[in-house]
Design a protein around this nucleic acid. Structure first.
Lengths: 102, 102
DNA sequence: TCCATAAATCGAAATATCTCGATATATAGC
DNA sequence: GCTATATATCGAGATATTTCGATTTATGGA
């Protein structure tokens, strides 16, 4: 739990919005039939929704991953990203701990 | 409650440490006798502890204030800063709301 | 009024972040 | 092996943040 990295990753409105979108798979187009049983969303779908370049979104997902907010799983040519709820909770606990009085 | 501004203010290790120091007045030198009944810590004491320039600390306290993490009160030539516990709690609730699923 | 002190503001250099297009890498199918 | 597609990485320009010293503003006291 690297607070520095996590807060830095959150310090961007698009990255925060991506984390929100990932709460619900139905924020994105339906998965391809062959991916029906996989969790997570591929980079291209996130890019399409965020309306930023492919390289920017790839970079953003890397930052969110390093911060522990998402995990990725590669299947063929696709990388699927999904939220890491446990780590997100751990981050919130850490921020509370740092901010709340004694 | 401007999440953008608040996260940005937190996105700096010195500013986070200042917020921690302000949890406990005894992290700083004792107040002058004529300030004994005042809450908060003057800029010079914070600067001394943070070991950054006066202008930097003044700027930082301004950012923390705009973010709602501290309030200031001027008494004579001194400005006393102290934590705004209610706003800090409100921020934590807002971050939770934004990050936590559903 | 003049001086001293505390804090805020200004202007600038160094560094970091944002965002892009181009290129590289990995994989799938022919 | 060749081609197409998905993603990652690279290099760079634009913008933002960090931090400073110098200056300005506000106040208090001789």
């Amino acid at each position: 739990m690297d607070l520095e990295k996590s807060i830095s990753a959150l310090n961007n409105p698009v990255r925060r919005r991506i984390l929100e979108w990932l709460k619900d798979r139905s924020n994105f187009p339906p998965a391809l039939p062959e991916h029906a049983d996989l969790e997570g969303v591929c980079v291209a779908y996130i890019q399409e929704k965020a309306k930023l370049s492919q390289s920017t979104i790839s970079n953003y997902m890397g930052l969110l991953k390093q911060a522990g907010f998402v995990v990725s799983e590669r299947h063929g040519q696709w990388t699927f990203y999904r939220r890491d709820e446990e780590n997100i909770s751990a981050f919130l606990a850490a921020v509370q701990d740092e901010l709340l009085k004694s």
